[in-house]
Write a protein that binds this DNA or RNA. Structure first.
Lengths: 192, 192
DNA sequence: ACATATCATCTAGCAGTGCTAGATTTTACT
DNA sequence: AGTAAAATCTAGCACTGCTAGATGATATGT
C-alpha cells in the first residue's frame, strides 16, 4: 500500500506547514492575528482542513508551544556548555533564557503564558520540556544540594522578568544588572 | 443646577456598579465570561450604556485593575508593618503578595498579565501602584543600598511564582519553601 | 398646562471569531 | 468507464466587541 504511505507523508507535511504558518504569523503579528480563516488562507486550504489535523485553535497553539520547548532546551544547553565556570554557566543560561523570550515573544507566550494542559513537572511531561528544566537543574547543582526547588524559583524569576518586560511593566534599561543580581543572589546563598 | 448634580451622582454610581459587576463576574467565572452582553444584563442596562461610561471592554478591565492596585498596596503595607524584624517583614510582604494573587486570580490577571497601557515606573504611574511598589522598596531597603533594582527582581520572582502556579506550570506543593528560598537569597546577598 | 428641545436609552445590525454539518469534488480501484 | 471511498469545500451557526439610528424620558420656556 504505497498509496497510504504517500497520503500519510502528505498529511504530515501539511501538519508541519500549518504549524509553521501559525508560528510565523503569530511571531509577525501576534496571536490575536492568528485566526482560523487567515491560517487557512496562508496554507491555501479551507478552514475545515485545519480541524482534520488539530482539534481546534488551542491544539494548534499547544503544538507550536511543544516545538518551542525543544528549541529552548537546545539553546539553554548550548549556553550552559559554552561556559566552564559554574557561575558563568548560570549567568549564560539566564541570559539565554531572557534572550529567547525577547526574540520570540509569541512562541514564548504559547509556551509559558497561554492556558495549556501540558503537564509540567510530572511523568508525562514532554521530554524537551523536561530537558529544558533539567538545564536549570544542572546549572544550579553546584550551588544547591537540592537544585529542583532552586531551579523552580530561578525559572520563576526569569519568567517574571520576561513577561513584565514584554508587557511594559518594567523598563527596558538595566536588564543586564537584573540578571547579575539574580545570579549573585544564587551564588551567595549556597546550600551544599 | 441641582439636577445636573444628581445626574452626575447617578452616573458615578452606575460607573461603580459596572466595575463591581465586571470584577465579580471575572472572579467567579474568569475574564472570558465577561462579555459586554452579560455585563449589560447584570447591571440591567443595554450594551451601549457601557460604552457611555467606558471606551470599550479593555477600558473596563483597566479600571478594574486600577482598583486592584489600591487593594494590593494596602495589603502589602499592612503585611510589612505587622512585622518588626526586617527579614520577617520581607517574608510577610512576599507571602501577602502571593496570597493576593492566589485569592483574586482574575483581579491579579487584570493588573499584571493582561495588556495594559498603564504606565509602570514613570511619572504618570497611578499613585496606588507606586505605593505598592514602594512597599517592596521599603522592605528591601535594609538589605540593599539601591533597593529599586532589588525590588524589581523580587517582584518579578513573585510574579513568576504567581502566574506559573496559577497556570499549573509549577506544582502547588512547597510554595512556602519557595518563599523561604526567595527571602533567604535576598538576606544572604546584602548590598549595603 | 402644554409644546419643545435635549438628553438618555434601546433596538437592531455589522463585521469579525471558532467551529461544523452536509454538499461536492477528487482519487483509487475494479 | 463506473463506482466506492476519501478528501475537501461551501455555507452557516452561535458567539464576540462595538455602533448608527430610532425611541423614549425629562427638563425648560411660554
Amino acid at each position: 500500500m504505497p498509496v497510504a504511505d504517500r497520503r500519510r507523508r502528505e498529511r504530515a507535511n501539511r501538519h508541519d506547514l500549518i504549524l509553521a504558518a501559525a508560528r510565523n504569523l503569530a511571531e509577525a503579528e501576534g496571536w490575536e492575528a492568528v485566526t482560523t480563516r487567515r491560517l487557512a488562507e496562508l496554507v491555501e486550504y479551507s478552514q475545515p482542513v485545519l480541524y482534520s489535523h488539530f482539534a481546534g485553535k488551542d491544539a494548534i497553539v499547544r503544538a507550536v508551544a511543544i516545538e518551542g520547548f525543544a528549541d529552548l532546551a537546545a539553546i539553554l544547553r548550548e549556553a550552559r556548555l559554552s561556559a566552564d565556570d559554574p557561575q558563568l554557566a548560570l549567568r549564560a543560561i539566564c541570559s539565554a533564557y531572557l534572550n529567547f523570550a525577547a526574540e520570540r515573544p509569541a512562541l514564548y507566550q504559547a509556551m509559558f503564558v497561554m492556558p495549556t494542559d501540558v503537564k509540567f513537572a510530572s511523568e508525562d511531561t514532554p521530554q524537551p520540556l523536561k530537558a529544558g528544566f533539567g538545564e536549570f537543574v544542572c546549572a544550579l547543582g553546584p550551588f544547591d544540594r537540592h537544585p529542583d526547588l532552586r531551579a523552580e524559583v530561578t525559572w520563576a524569576a526569569l519568567h517574571g522578568l520576561a513577561v513584565l518586560r514584554r508587557g511594559g511593566r518594567i523598563p527596558p534599561e538595566r536588564q543586564e544588572e537584573r540578571i547579575d543580581l539574580l545570579v549573585s543572589q544564587v551564588v551567595n546563598d549556597r546550600r551544599d
